[in-house]
């Protein structure tokens, strides 16, 4: 199925939404920094950092790659053997 809008139309329409989401994320990380205690050893912080790197990386299917970055490793399943 096609994507009816052009890239320029999409950017025009969504730029402020994208900007707001990035600022919201930046503010959330600032909030954690300001709070008492440290979460540097929490693996979820590392996951978030890797997610941010992925966001800035080239290539398509960023959403799919982001999902995999937050997924359990692909190990042999209880149902028997690794899926094909």
């Amino acid at each position: 199925m096609s994507t009816p809008l052009t890239a320029a139309e999409m950017l025009d329409r969504e730029f402020l939404t994208f900007r707001a989401k990035l600022v919201d994320l930046a503010a959330a990380l600032d909030r954690i920094d300001r709070a008492e205690g440290s979460v540097d050893a929490d693996p979820r912080i590392d996951q978030l950092r890797r997610g941010l790197e992925l966001l800035a990386s080239p290539g398509d299917r960023r959403a799919e790659r982001m999902q995999m970055a937050f997924s359990l490793p692909d190990e042999p399943t209880v149902a028997g053997g690794l899926s094909s």
Binding site: M68, F70, S71, L72, E75, A79, S83
Partner: peptide, 15 residues
């Protein structure tokens, strides 16, 4: 949900 989705989906498809 979340981090379990990929693994769980593969298990269901295997079954």
């Amino acid at each position: 949900h979340l981090e379990d989705k990929y693994k769980g989906t593969r298990m269901i498809l295997d079954l």
